[in-house]
């Protein structure tokens, strides 16, 4: 099974491609700039939250495997605070960031992870079938 660093690698690539598309919109369609900036800010926050979550998951499972106590942290509050900070940015500067685009793109990374997981598992299944020689039979 593909491990967390593999998912993070593909999530990083997907997020960068998404930002590139948004920056193209910024360059080519000036009327839609606030929406594109909102999407970029929301997906950036979502990406940071997901990377932080991956680190926390690794710490929790390592602690469980080694029989250690879990280290304390702010947990969900930290991720929610970063998201609210991004929305405050949109409330304070509506001429730069579209609030609804920003709020909507805060769930970019979780939904991208589902798609990435689906594609990676299909790819892995196909590779393992090839290794067993099922395709050539």
């Amino acid at each position: 099974m593909i491990e967390i660093p593999g998912y993070i690698y593909w999530l990083t690539r997907t997020t960068f491609i998404f930002w590139a598309i948004c920056l193209l919109v910024v360059a080519l369609l000036p009327d839609y700039r606030p929406i594109a900036f909102g999407l970029i800010a929301g997906s950036a926050v979502s990406y940071v939250n997901t990377k932080y979550l991956a680190r926390k998951v690794r710490l929790i499972t390592d602690a469980a495997a080694n029989g250690e106590k879990k280290k304390r942290g702010l947990g969900f509050s930290q991720r929610a605070a970063v998201s609210v900070a991004a929305v405050i940015l949109a409330v304070k500067f509506p001429q730069w960031f579209e609030m609804y685009a920003l709020a909507g793109s805060l769930v970019f990374a979780p939904f991208a992870l589902i798609v990435i997981g689906f594609i990676l598992s299909r790819h892995e299944e196909r590779n393992s079938a090839n290794e067993r020689g099922e395709k050539n039979a």
Partner: peptide, 11 residues
């Protein structure tokens, strides 16, 4: 299990 937990908690 780590990977499954990561995707589950993220969602």
């Amino acid at each position: 299990l780590q990977t499954l937990m990561f995707i589950g908690v993220g969602l």
